[in-house]
């Protein structure tokens, strides 16, 4: 951290990549919220769809994990 411009770029890039985690949070919240809205309308069908819920959350979360991974790579591996 002593005036190295490349290091600065790394840290800024890592911080920017971490924004992706927030985007993934929005996505996961969207999935869960819509599931809840549907489940409250038709509670009898909700139990059979929890697996779908988790698969949806997993897909949405995977992209956030990618962003996290990019941040980690920038911080430690580059």
């Amino acid at each position: 951290m002593e005036g190295d411009i490349a290091n600065m770029g790394q840290f800024i890039g890592a911080g920017l990549a971490a924004i992706g985690s927030g985007a993934a949070a929005i996505g996961v919240g969207h999935v869960a919220g819509n599931f809840l809205a549907g489940a409250l309308r038709n509670p009898s069908a909700a139990a059979g769809q929890t697996a779908t819920l988790f698969i949806g959350i997993a897909f949405a979360e995977a992209l956030g994990i990618f962003a996290f991974l990019v941040a980690l790579l920038l911080m430690f591996a580059v």
Partner: peptide
């Protein structure tokens, strides 16, 4: 890729 990184990434994070 996503299958493996999801698990490792979650636990690591």
């Amino acid at each position: 890729v996503s299958h493996s990184i999801r698990l490792a990434g979650n636990v690591m994070a």
